[in-house]
Design a protein around this nucleic acid. Structure first.
Length: 678
DNA sequence: CATTTATAAATTTTT
DNA sequence: TTTATAAATG
């Protein structure tokens, strides 16, 4: 009961609007809450209030969009309900809850048991296979590439709009090929069904189908009494449909959101669904939270000025935040000579802050895209400043991790074509043509494919692959019964991977095997192989600070994060780097006014993460070409950066400083030489 | 004949 | 770092 009392102490500290949101007895509730207005706390308190009123925890569903938010909410609200192993509040991302429900009831909507969830890169690869098999993208024909196909697909499905409209609006250069794109999508659907796999979008689609089905819909509508949804401004049409379909006659829906923080347009999220909430859920009480308790007025001045020029203020306007805190320190805008200067500026500031008693984990560095932190990561490593990076490339994206997971997936679902392909391609002397033949002869698509590989009916492999084959088969044979714990299975499979990795990744095999050991350690908490696989797909570990060993979560570390991943978080000090025009807003997003506005909101989200200190920086000169391409070998391929256009209106409330010495502007020799032959 | 190697081109944000 | 095509190799 202790936690209940402590929760009631919180409730006493709520302001009148927050407590209205917590106590409201209306059937439906929409909380329009600006950044830093105590949204999460209000939601958690509402859950506490419901529990105190006698609602059973397992009758409460708490939906979030990001995994970070899910973790935080279930931590805060979930603790309340844990009395001696009593059932807990259902909490998680839309996708995680969908998965949980479909494992239970999936057969009712035509899903076979034992289905595998494809992550984004798997889904993209499968689209690429279909694309290739249809002979698209061959010579000269500039057909949409697999990544483009994946985003078109996801947009179409999540927005529930006709393909032609989506292509016209967002991918006009593919207009000519809509017919063929449709054909690819059909092939993709067929391929998924054949392999008994579902992608992220399918999880939502099948959940909706379940909730709308005559037989199970009623069951689901009576499973939960209260549905609470966080970050409602990021809902897409599919998710809005799901919430509506789950809301039976005796269900209350409480949604919380902020249209000024809608940043998931690329996933078809739209604040429109929030403004339509009152129509869709009639009788909803609307509560607005605008008092900001998080940031100093100095920081809010920046935030408010960023949004002042917003062209499309929503009708549920929360963008002007009222400061409740006393004045603090003026935020800084640092024009850095180059990226190196920016990196050392940030490191200096971080260390200085730590000297003043602000722990590293109270500080965050935020940026638009994953690779924007590359330079900084090098400098942090050089100065031995520990950090953890959220967003960007993940541990699981590494080829060798996918290789081992493919072996596990094969054991879990022997009809998974992608897993088969990945494993076969790892063997010596096996290429696309052999893979095609083997897939046919193994009859991948039937559950017997694995027994066929391990048994006497095993098809003929090229002689060069026989050694690899016997190693892999032996390992698969040892694990096929699934009587070993997942961690032991990984250890056994990793053994078979040693020779494969040594050949495929000669220079890095050692490091990669250490990563597999990391994977094994992560698996030790799981008792079920399929649970582990699903968890790795739906809630993969965030990228680690270093390639070796597990991150020491007890230690102090600096947080590096994309702005998208940072939403919902707050830190005493926030450093926004690469805030140059072209980065925020991204050059990619200049196509339409809507996209540009989303970038503005992104800047707003970044700024409003800060409590006490905010430093925005950008390099005046930065390289366009990424390392690895040879294009900058002759002369610098750099460009001169202007600060983000969203900061234009903030100059009066920012301290502008210059960082870095103006050294030699450019290499005097190379351009001179280049002039000789250009 | 099939596979490996070489070369050029293109690269947002998350579940 | 991936991806399509061309050349080189087994």
């Amino acid at each position: 009961m202790v936690s209940f009392e402590c929760m009631f102490e919180w409730i006493e500290e709520l302001n009148p609007e927050q407590s209205e949101a917590v106590m409201a007895e209306d059937r439906h509730l929409l909380v329009v809450a600006g950044a830093g207005t105590g949204k999460t706390r209000t939601l958690a308190c509402r859950v506490a209030r419901l529990l105190a009123d006698g609602v059973r925890p397992e009758r409460i569903l708490l939906l979030t969009f990001s995994r970070r938010a899910a973790r935080e909410m279930t931590l805060r609200a979930g603790q309340l309900a844990e009395f001696g192993g009593a059932p807990r509040v259902w909490g998680g991302t839309f996708h995680a809850i969908a998965h949980r429900l479909l494992r239970q009831h999936g057969e009712a909507v035509g899903l076979r048991t034992g289905f595998t969830v494809l992550d984004q890169s798997d889904a993209t690869d499968l689209l690429g296979l279909v694309r290739h098999d249809l002979g698209l993208g061959e010579q000269g024909r500039r057909f949409a590439k697999k990544d483009t196909l994946a985003s078109i697909y996801s947009r179409t499905v999540n927005a529930q709009r006709p393909l032609i409209e989506v292509v016209d609006e967002s991918y006009p250069w593919c207009r000519r090929d809509v017919g063929a794109i449709g054909t690819v999508f059909n092939g993709y659907l067929e391929r998924k069904r054949l392999g008994n796999v579902v992608d992220f979008d399918d999880l939502l689609l099948y959940w909706r189908a379940l909730a709308q089905s005559p037989r199970l819909g009623l069951l689901l509508q009576t499973t939960f009494e209260h549905i609470l949804v966080d970050e409602f401004q990021d809902t897409n049409a599919l998710q809005a449909d799901i919430v509506a379909a789950m809301a039976g006659p005796n269900v209350s829906v409480a949604a919380v959101g902020d249209d000024a923080q809608a940043i998931y347009g690329f996933r078809s999220g739209s604040a429109r669904h929030m403004s339509e909430f009152p129509q869709r859920f009639p009788g909803a009480r609307i509560v607005r939270l605008v008092r900001n308790y998080r940031s100093t007025p100095d920081i809010l001045d920046v935030a408010n000025n960023v949004m002042a020029a917003a062209t499309a203020p929503g009708d549920l306007d929360t963008k002007y935040l009222r400061a409740e805190r006393p004045p603090g320190v003026r935020p800084q805008l640092a024009a850095c000579v180059d990226e190196l200067a920016q990196s050392s500026f940030v490191c200096d500031l971080v260390l200085e802050n730590r000297e003043q008693g602000i722990a590293l984990r109270e500080q965050a560095v935020l940026f638009r895209t994953g690779h924007h932190s590359d330079g900084l990561e090098l400098e942090l490593a050089r100065r031995n400043i520990p950090f953890v990076k959220f967003g960007g490339l993940r541990f699981l994206e590494a080829a060798h991790i996918k290789d081992v997971l493919a072996l596990l997936r094969l054991l879990d679902n022997p009809t998974d074509e992608l897993a088969w392909r990945r494993i076969l391609a790892l063997m010596n002397g096996v290429g696309p043509a052999t893979i095609r033949r083997l897939l046919e002869e193994l009859e991948v698509g039937t559950p017997q494919a694995l027994t066929r590989l391990l048994g006497p009916e095993c098809p003929r492999f090229p002689p060069s692959a026989l050694a690899d084959l016997s190693g892999v088969s032996a390992a698969l044979g040892d694990c096929v019964a699934d009587d070993l714990p997942p961690a032991d299975q990984i250890e056994r499979l990793a053994l078979a991977c040693v020779p494969l990795f040594n050949r495929r990744y000669p220079a890095t095999a050692k490091v990669r095997l250490a990563d597999i050991e990391h994977l094994r350690i992560m698996a030790t908490d799981y008792r079920s192989r399929s649970r582990f696989l699903a968890e790795m797909t739906l809630d993969p570990p965030s990228a680690t600070s270093d390639l070796a060993g597990a991150p020491h979560l007890d230690d102090d570390y600096l947080v590096l994060s994309t702005i998208h991943s940072a939403k919902g978080g707050e830190w005493r000090c926030v450093h926004i780097i690469h805030a140059a025009d072209g980065n925020i807003p991204s050059d990619m997003a200049l196509g339409s006014p809507e996209e540009l506005e989303e970038e503005r909101r992104l800047m707003y989200v970044g700024v409003t993460r800060a409590r006490d200190n905010l430093a925005i920086s950008y390099p005046i000169r930065f390289y366009v070409a990424r390392s690895g391409s040879a294009s900058n070998a002759w002369g610098d391929a750099h460009t001169y950066g202007q600060p983000s256009r969203f900061l234009d209106a903030t100059t009066a409330v920012l301290d502008s400083i210059s960082v870095g010495e103006v050294t030699v502007e450019r290499d005097p020799v190379a351009p001179e030489l280049a002039a000789l032959w250009s």
